[in-house]
């Protein structure tokens, strides 16, 4: 039963990813003009004249004069074998540019998600069980502050505090000596030393939201009759809490993976700029501005795929957690 559900769910992602790829391609094609018009405009701004014929020649060479569907086909058939095309701006294969940045983005997103859960889960339970206690009010207030404060502001504040009071090196994800170095154990350790700042910054607002969700869910569950039944069995309050109401309140919590994931990745762009992180966000923005079609397309497609996979993971976890979903 569970296996059929999972297989079915995985098979469904295939047509979905196909649709996503079309939308992604349509989106990067949507702005008027193409890379060459932007390129010509940039040159014109700096006073250079561009030869119209040369532009046309380039356009033909890149296939930019062909209809949408043909361009899409050329692109997607390449993607399927791992060839994401060539970045116009950087004049090198897209795959050379993106993998490390995507990996770092993913690493950042996953650590942030784990941080968020680690913070939101116990605090959410606490503030539901001790509803309207002083602790609940304190946590709630901090939660609202976290929700209301824009990430980049928190980033600036943390950077200031980090530099002035701790003398920490706050920009980027690596110390300068490791930036171009090949991967090694020392580099991983260095990453660990740097990543906590963006993790805290990005995690604050989503944990604030999750604390509210956990608290509300749990408050709904705490007065359900099955809790009284469990109490009448003689279970201790703590075991009872974790086994019954928390288990049921987890459902919406797990569903949040689906939306928290893409939010973390796209929401990280501004923070990444402020902290000059070598993640996918800044490069994607640059590629979009320059209408660097294949680079932007590859990023968007990969981000969408991650989102779809996030949804898939949360659906499968939900089915594992709640038998009612499996049997429907």
């Amino acid at each position: 039963m569970l296996l059929t559900y999972i297989i079915k769910r995985i098979l469904w992602t295939i047509p979905f990813l196909f649709a996503v790829s079309i939308v992604a391609f349509a989106l990067i094609q949507a702005p008027p003009g193409d890379y060459l018009t932007t390129f010509a405009a940039t040159l014109a701004q700096s006073g250079d004249m561009v030869d119209q014929e040369r532009l046309e020649a380039l356009r033909t060479r890149y296939g930019l004069d062909q209809p949408f569907i043909v361009q899409y086909w050329k692109w997607i058939s390449g993607v399927l074998v791992g060839d994401f095309g060539i970045s116009f701006e950087w004049q090198q294969p897209v795959s050379n540019l993106i993998w490390e940045r995507m990996a770092l983005s993913l690493c950042l997103a996953v650590s942030t998600l784990l941080f968020t859960w680690a913070v939101a889960f116990p605090i959410g339970i606490y503030s539901a069980v001790r509803k309207y206690s002083i602790g609940d009010y304190v946590v709630t207030t901090i939660g609202f502050l976290g929700l209301a404060m824009p990430n980049f502001l928190l980033a600036l504040v943390l950077m200031y505090i980090g530099v002035v009071y701790f003398g920490a090196d706050v920009g980027g994800l690596f110390s300068p000596e490791y930036q171009t170095a090949p991967w090694s154990w020392a580099k991983v350790v260095d990453l660990g030393k740097h990543i906590w700042i963006p993790v805290v910054i990005l995690g604050t607002s989503s944990s604030a939201a999750l604390i509210r969700i956990m608290r509300a869910n749990l408050l709904d569950e705490l007065n359900k009759p099955y809790v009284t039944t469990a109490r009448a069995k003689g279970l201790s309050e703590f075991r009872l809490l974790l086994k019954y109401p928390v288990r049921l309140a987890l459902n919406p919590f797990v569903s949040t993976i689906g939306w928290a994931f893409p939010q973390l990745i796209s929401g990280a762009v501004i923070t990444a700029f402020v902290l000059s992180l070598p993640t996918a966000g800044p490069l994607l923005l640059q590629a979009l501005l320059a209408q660097d079609m294949y680079l932007a397309g590859a990023f968007i497609l990969l981000l969408c795929t991650l989102t779809v996979v996030g949804m898939l993971v949360s659906d499968i976890l939900l089915a594992l957690l709640d038998p009612r979903i499996r049997y429907r």
């Binding site: 009759p225 099955y226 109490r231 049921l248």
Partner: peptide
């Protein structure tokens, strides 16, 4: 509770956990 004195409740659907 549950050993010397046990209790049965009204609504058998909501008085048992749906996920266990």
């Amino acid at each position: 509770r549950g050993r010397d004195i046990a209790m049965i409740f009204q609504e058998p659907m909501s008085s048992l956990s749906p996920v266990h």
